Simulated assay, not measured.
Amino acid sequence: MLQRAILPIRRRLDRAGIFLSGACALHCLLSIVLVSGLGIGGELFLAPEIHEIGLLLATLIAGVAIGWGALRHRMAAPFVIAMTGLTFMGAALAVPHGIKEAVLTIIGVALVSFGHILNLRHVHSSACKERCGD
């Protein structure tokens, strides 16, 4: 019973993680185009606080949603993939702004997003099995 009540929360967190990953990738691409190409918005787009807050949010959301799924369903793949992505995102904070940072971040957010997608698929298949009695 409690699992059914928690399931929508996990789905929302996974969807929020996917959205956050997409927004982060878009931010990286816009940063490269606007700052490097046009020379505008550097103080906003390249602010370290944006990247640190983004990594913190991604870590919290992935930790709760994917960690929860890993504990509940004993599936390591979404967790390992997402944590690898978070490692890439953390590494991006250690390099200077530019192409290297963007590449590391985009790889990281793609992996985190993929971990959330796998988690959502498993939640969906588990919910179907519980409803259908399989």
Rank of each mutant, 00 (worst) to 15 (best):
A91F: 14
L7H: 10
A92Q: 12
L57C: 11
I6M: 11
G39N: 07
C128N: 08
E49C: 04
Q3V: 06
I6T: 07
L20G: 08
F79K: 02
A110Q: 05
R74S: 11
A47C: 12
L7D: 15
W68Q: 12
L34T: 00
G69Q: 08
P48A: 08
D14F: 10
H124G: 04
P8M: 04
A91G: 04
A16W: 07
L34H: 05
T84E: 03
F19K: 02
T59L: 08
H116Y: 04
L38G: 00
E101A: 13
L13Q: 05
G17K: 02
A110R: 04
I53Y: 08
A82D: 06
H122V: 03
I117R: 11
R72A: 13
K100L: 14
A94D: 05
A62S: 14
K129F: 03
A5C: 06
T87V: 15
E130C: 08
L55M: 09
R11E: 11
C24E: 01
F19Y: 08
V112T: 14
V95E: 01
I18C: 07
L2D: 11
E52K: 14
E101Y: 01
A77D: 09
K100E: 13
A58R: 02
A25K: 05
V123W: 10
L30P: 01
I53F: 14
L120I: 00
D134L: 10
A77K: 09
R10E: 08
L20W: 12
G133Y: 10
S21D: 03
G85I: 10
A62E: 02
I107F: 12
H51L: 09
G63E: 07
L46F: 13
A62Q: 03
I32D: 06
G108P: 03
T105L: 06
C28T: 02
V123N: 14
R131S: 10
I50T: 14
F19L: 15
F19Q: 01
C28K: 00
E52Y: 09
C24I: 09
I99Y: 09
V33C: 02
I18N: 03
A62I: 03
A62P: 07
V80I: 15
A5T: 07
A65L: 02
